[in-house]
Write a protein that binds this DNA or RNA. Structure first.
Lengths: 148, 148
DNA sequence: CTCGATGCAAAGGTTTTGCACCAGG
DNA sequence: CCTGGTGCAAAACCTTTGCATCGAG
């Protein structure tokens, strides 16, 4: 249905990796939830739902690692909670997260990249793939003094 | 020895909080390691070393929370691993972390704040206290294709 | 004296790992 | 086939919580 799934799968093949039912399901879920930032736990649930049977959490984590190493997805820890996943293909935005309430806002890459890249290189950090997470405190919480 | 310790302790008193040996030790360690970004575990070890006796981890975590709520320190999760702590008083910098190797670079607040604040407000994220963590991938790793 | 802080012990959530078995290519 | 992927079980890791006791003010 979604051509992106095929891209993911053939990318796996290209890397000499096997296509298994679990991996196929992971790719389908990720491609089907393009703008979402799933945690590993959420991904796990969706994969099980799609496959109609239990899948071991370790399989999910290992699949995430595999796809990460193949450069197909990003895995970032925003603020305090769990890690968050999204495909590299829709890498057109970055994330800003409030470290108090966890509210996340997308930051379009187009306007951010130039500015941020300049800021980084000026400070001796040669960023390769620009793919960031920005954690700050939004005004809702700084006012109340519950900033972290 | 360090006047900053007294500031921290009187700030605690001002907030109606008690000065205990454990809290005093935490403040001493933090004030004594001004440029370091300690994890809770590292802080715990240093506090025990300074006190010459075991201290319960929960005491450390609760003390961190307390100091956080009093606005005396920041607690950020950089990249994958554990959370990192540093005093608010030396809040003159932010952090950039490589999500592959964990290398962390300081970003002087002076030059960063204007730029970043503009970027955030432009995207509907009203940042109160500017206090960020920026996670990206440094060139050492993007070249090798082991980006996360 | 009183309330807040600590220690202890247990559990929480997320992620990792070792090993035997199974199945993709 | 044969290597790589999976399930299972256990543990690692960081952190939180409930409860009884202790001690700062």
């Amino acid at each position: 249905v979604n051509p992106e799934v095929d891209e993911l799968l053939s990318a796996l093949r290209r890397h000499g990796l096997r296509i298994t039912p679990a991996r196929r399901a992971v790719c389908q879920v990720l491609a089907g939830a393009p703008d979402q930032h799933l945690t590993a736990v959420e991904l796990h649930k969706k994969v099980e739902a799609r496959m109609g049977r239990p899948v071991d959490p370790s399989t999910i984590y290992r699949t995430i690692d595999t796809l990460e190493e193949a450069g197909l997805l990003h895995h970032v820890h925003l603020g305090h909670g769990a890690g968050v996943i999204h495909l590299s293909t829709e890498d057109s935005h970055h994330h800003i997260t409030c470290d108090v309430c966890g509210r996340t806002v997308d930051l379009p890459a187009k306007q951010a990249d130039r500015i941020l890249r300049a800021l980084l290189t000026r400070n001796g950090f040669e960023a390769g793939s620009l793919h960031f997470a920005l954690v700050a405190t939004c005004t809702d919480h700084t006012k109340k003094g519950d900033a972290r």
